[in-house]
Amino acid sequence: MKSLPLLPVRPFSGNTSEETRRGRTPLQNMIAREVTDHVRSWRFAVLLSLIALTFLGSMYVSAGNIRAAVANTQDPDHLFLYLKLLTTTDGSLPPFHIFLSFLGPLLGIGLGFDAINSEQNNGTLSRILAQPVYRDNLLLSKFAGALLVIGCLFVSLSLLMIGTGICITGVKIEPEEILRISGFLFLSILYVGFWLALAILCSIRFRQTATSALVVIGIWLFFTVFFKIVVNLAVRAFLPDPAYLLPTEIMKYNELILNLLRFSPGQLYTDGTTTLLMPSVRSLGPLTMEQMAGAIPAPLPFRESLLIVWPQVSGLTAATVVCFALSYALFMRREIRV
């Protein structure tokens, strides 16, 4: 080590904004670092190619069947070309939004499961928290950084989709379709955001990255695979023999099962995206004949579809906020020991 040239001792000037880099606050710097970290990581490259591949696959299938779908005048939605592009399938591959209900969690988990504990294990956590930044800024930067990356991914994928659609068919996109696709994007980002928040929560709770990854993946598997089975089993135990039930009672039980299933975020997401992408869907539960009487099979306006999915959106938002709040509660007063 050499001797130190006398540095001018500068009175500390605080966080005045004109001093910081291009007006960046420490929080923005942290988010920028997170984004760089994600974008350069192998993990993200793998996840990105996975999402891109499923997107290309489902687009390929739907582009092949688009002519038939649009020509099908029985379908009240047949004029929404771009929504059709997102939802049409010939059965060989599920449509993109169903794919996303499986892969979205993986994306969120992959970007968040080691958010805090890897920093702690690498010894960077105590160094960062010894700097004059708020503790919650670190959590926020983890959340915002990953969400920003995911948002960019989804938005660019759908723009690609729309662009390709315009190139192939030359059909102008309707404002209603733009609204619905934006709604779909928002819902998808929110959905991934929920899993991200859950993963970050686990990364705070568990010291080992492997443990936290296993726990979140366990929760994800439970909701995608076992939850339906558990609900069915549980309801069947209580359900009287349907043969002795009135139709209205059967309806009630059906409603109950559906509502129980909606505890799974995946169900909320599928409900929401289906309603948004298929304008003719007017209810997410069963409808009685009386309710259907006099209804013309026509697409709903965007506002009406939005009203139908509003509970789902609120539910997902609430779940995300709860995870995030728990993360805060755990992290803010925890002792930062290396």
């Binding site: 000037s13 005045t16 880099r21 960046r24 420490p26 710097n29």
Partner: peptide, 8 residues
């Protein structure tokens, strides 16, 4: 340094 808001 940036977290400490030192001018660039």
């Amino acid at each position: 340094g940036r977290l400490n808001a030192i001018p660039e």
